[in-house]
Design a protein around this nucleic acid. Sequence first.
DNA 1: GTCTATAGCATGATAGAC
DNA 2: GTCTATCATGCTATAGAC
Lengths: 196, 196
Amino acid sequence: MTATTDRRGELLRIAATLFAEKGFKNTTVRDIAEAAGILSGSLYHHFDSKESMVDEILSTFRAQLFAAYGDVLASDDDARAKLERVVRLSFEAIDQHPAEVAIFQNDADHPGSFERFGYLAERGVQSRDIWLSLLNEGVETGALRPDLDVHLVYRFIRDTVWVAVRWYRPGGDLSHGDVADQYLSILLEGIASSAD
Amino acid sequence: MTATTDRRGELLRIAATLFAEKGFKNTTVRDIAEAAGILSGSLYHHFDSKESMVDEILSTFRAQLFAAYGDVLASDDDARAKLERVVRLSFEAIDQHPAEVAIFQNDADHPGSFERFGYLAERGVQSRDIWLSLLNEGVETGALRPDLDVHLVYRFIRDTVWVAVRWYRPGGDLSHGDVADQYLSILLEGIASSAD
DNA sequence: GTCTATAGCATGATAGAC
DNA sequence: GTCTATCATGCTATAGAC
């Protein structure tokens, strides 16, 4: 890592925080420059455009995340254990990369606004297939209830996990492991008392 | 309802759809006018500003929603029945006012971007109190598991219910009642098989 | 690597004719 | 109630000095 690379990374970190807080469109190039202590024109020495910045932020994060998913899937755990690990991995990602997750949630989802991020949709499909295969395997092996619509279960899990980025604060009272524990307990066992 | 009022409502409906699809900031006054078949300047005969449009859209919806909540809370159902009714009510709101819910989810949440919507935060607190009192009552009466963090359960329920606006499509294969059934089943009983 | 200066464009909003 | 025309502003991005 040269000094140039470090500066790039620092600027991307600053931009990511602002994008996460205010949204991509709502964050101006001048905002980013001001937060970095330079003027807007100077940013273009490091990056081609505002879009190339968010592009680099998201693609870097996405690559890390899917590499981690790959490790879990390649293991020989059973479906339920894999499912738990993927959930824990996701809360860990929220803990360690909250800005990136927030940008995904807030900006990369809008149908019209991010046509150029088609590769994100592809990865979304890939992610869905991972979850669906785990859920189906869980049903087949008898670990999960057979009477539920797995597609619906998938959407509930996906949304609930990622949307936690809206309220989870790294370094707060709850660790990402605590949140994952409680979440998995609710998801797997439900909130009704077992005596009910 | 005069013709003037109808025209207002029609324009607001058009604007709400665009705000929901592309986001508030991403939707231009010219976009709204074009979708309505008029020119941008003409919109200002009906509304003071773009913000006043989204203001009216959200406050109208919010009033309807909280009125419906009020009916449930005023009933003499027990906590679990009320909880189920509030969940069903929320999915019904997504079915009948998807644009409004989407705007809430996508735009009214950003901390920095919507300072003028302070009243939404107040309502958010009110909504949280409703849920927390229901959950606490459920725990006290033995209907719900006592070992869970109710604040976390609240956030889990709130997020999962409302985020469904991202994929639920009115008139599709699943009715809002179907979704509510499955969701409540997952939430209350969990996805693990009971033999597990 | 940052600054000065500015081009070029899109935006929210206004005034007055019809 | 809509259109024509336009203003003022803020935006992304560029060019060249330092």
